[in-house]
Design a protein around this nucleic acid. Structure first.
Lengths: 337, 337
DNA sequence: TTCTTTAATTTTAACGTTTACTCTAATTTG
DNA sequence: CAAATTAGAGTAAACGTTAAAATTAAAGAA
């Protein structure tokens, strides 16, 4: 009904020029206080809202920030997105969400779309395929178009861009150390994300902890595969052969799988075996037994990445910047002693 | 570097007018084939992309579709969003994502934002609080601004808007019938979402199935609370007192909780007791034991809602429309016989 | 040949803002 | 009291497009 009124219409009603109205609403000192008031009153009466398209065209910006997540069903990314959304909104921008489905091609398509200047900046966690092939051409291209890019979470990538993530080596090192402090020494590893940098980092962190702490560590302690069936079989075999005292899952599916295989093998958590996973409260807390996990503070990661990006959009600083957040081991049933 | 070139600059390079360039790129019949070709070649050479702000301003649209989800950590909504994203992108729009956090106030704030004409339409699953208070004023207001709104999932709402969801009564009725067909007759219910319409619908569906099939049903068979601790206690008590043969969880947390309490009560799934939940593959498949669930096809729901909204944006039809999708009972360990 | 049609392009206005610049009248200054 | 400043407004250009209307030149018809 009382559909959007424009500056021009307000101007006509007030018998002043369009620019007087515009200036009044922007509290310009060029306009007399009484005129300002008169304008503002009518504007409020008619519920005037500036047309964002027009304002943004004039200001050569969009007010939009794109986020590309590889997989939104992973609650980690869902929570990062939640963090981004809250922060972005509080900064007066909007989030345009894209899901790459772990596909390089889709990622390229999306960045191609973005290159028309639809957004002021991009937050991205690169897809598995992208990391595997090491093809970051599309991200470089965005830089050429002067669209700032901030990487989050999957930041183990050889490219000059701002990054926000955690120290994956340290996070698992700490987990191993914790177990060691409780006299647990035979620790297995399950991993379905060996293809991406951050999986490799975690494995490396595990290996280096084992070495430093002088833990027993045979080849089959590290179970890595993209194929869940293989993962399950190998893990089952490991449990049969060795007296594993704890398992660390490097991703949420591995973690759930580990819990499942352990129980199918008639081992009791946490009495026979401890479990620690990279996972989220949603997946661990209501579980039985509930699983201790390494919290990477996804909401905070989202908020941090957003702030960094907005700084860039505003043109602050030049050198790329890498922000590392602390992780935290959250205890549930599976690490009870 | 080779930052965005405009029509004006192309025109100057080609020694023609801006409108010739514009028309050429839009394949206007007013322009000669050779000019069109000449223009297109240079445009491609300079990687010309029309400025979306300018185009949209001219066309009085935005190309944006807003989605408000109550909680993105719930993989159901995450998947709806994925469905929306894919469909929206294929239709040439962008998704602007908002998370209401189950808060009416936030929902109002967001719709207020949207009323400046930032988006062409809105997809929303209303928050718990909104349903509890029954305050839909903000949605009405959007209609006044001629912004089409489509409700999804939580559609048990007394308001004249397009809706896409499932038949909640029937979905649970079918689940109860299935159990009955397997000679299971003492069926309990756990529910943490009794406050929202769809929870009530499911409870009603359960009750009506029990009645029709002449199942035993005492008051304490239906365990409802927003408080997980209470839920847990009551359920434990129920299991102690009665020989429950199956439990249906009306939301994913209740479902996980049920599985947990059952196992803590030393009952074996599925031998002693079956479980069916409203949940998602992510939460059930890798679980031990894996849990059978009622699939509400979230991706499809997202895609369907998107299509309906885009029809509205294009101005097709007037009467509001309610689209009901079929649900499906997916079997895992917890309903093995 | 003159008139009419058609083809191809340019001019202009418009979308809704912002803002640099200009204008006028009132006020201040020397 | 004339000159200079300033307050308060208006004009117009600009952001990058699209498209209706106008112009021009060439082709076709009488």
């Amino acid at each position: 009904m009382r559909s959007k009124i424009t500056l021009k219409e307000l101007a006509k009603l007030l018998n002043v020029s369009v620019s007087t109205v515009s200036k009044s609403l922007n509290d310009s000192s060029e306009i007399s206080p009484k005129t300002i008031q008169r304008v503002k009153e009518l504007a409020k009466l008619h519920n005037y809202k500036p047309n964002p398209m027009a304002v943004n065209l004039k200001h050569k910006r969009t007010g939009n920030i794109a986020v590309i997540v590889p997989n939104i069903s992973n609650p980690f990314f869902a929570k990062v997105l939640a963090g981004v959304e809250t922060e972005v909104r509080s900064l007066g921008f909007q989030v345009i969400t894209y899901i790459s489905n772990e596909s390089l091609q889709l990622e390229q398509q999306i960045t191609e779309l973005l290159s028309n200047g639809m957004v002021d900046g991009l937050l991205i966690s690169v897809s598995e395929e992208t990391q595997r092939t090491g093809d970051y051409e599309h991200l470089h291209r965005l830089k050429e178009y002067e669209i700032p890019v901030v990487l989050f979470d999957r930041i183990n990538v050889d490219i000059e861009l701002d990054k926000v993530g955690v120290n994956d080596m340290r996070s698992i090192y700490n987990a191993v150390s914790f177990l060691y402090s409780k006299n647990i020494k035979k620790i297995g590893l399950v991993c379905a994300i060996g293809e991406i940098g951050l999986g490799k980092q975690r494995i490396e962190g595990y290996l280096s902890a084992c070495k430093d702490l002088n833990l027993e560590m045979k080849d089959n302690y590290v179970v890595v595969s993209e194929d869940y069936a293989v993962l399950k079989k190998d893990l089952k075999e490991l449990l049969r052969q060795e007296d594993i005292e704890a398992i660390i899952g490097l991703d949420y599916i591995s973690t759930l799988l580990a819990s499942r295989v352990v129980q199918e093998s008639n081992l009791k958590i946490p009495y026979d075996i401890k479990i620690i996973g990279y996972a989220n409260a949603e997946y661990t807390e209501y579980y039985w037994p509930s699983i201790s996990y390494i919290d990477q503070h996804p909401m905070k990661m989202g908020a941090t990445a957003t702030n960094l990006l907005v700084e860039r959009i505003k043109g602050v600083g030049e050198k790329t910047y890498e922000k590392i957040l602390e992780t935290e081991l959250v205890h549930f049933d599976s690490t009870e002693f």
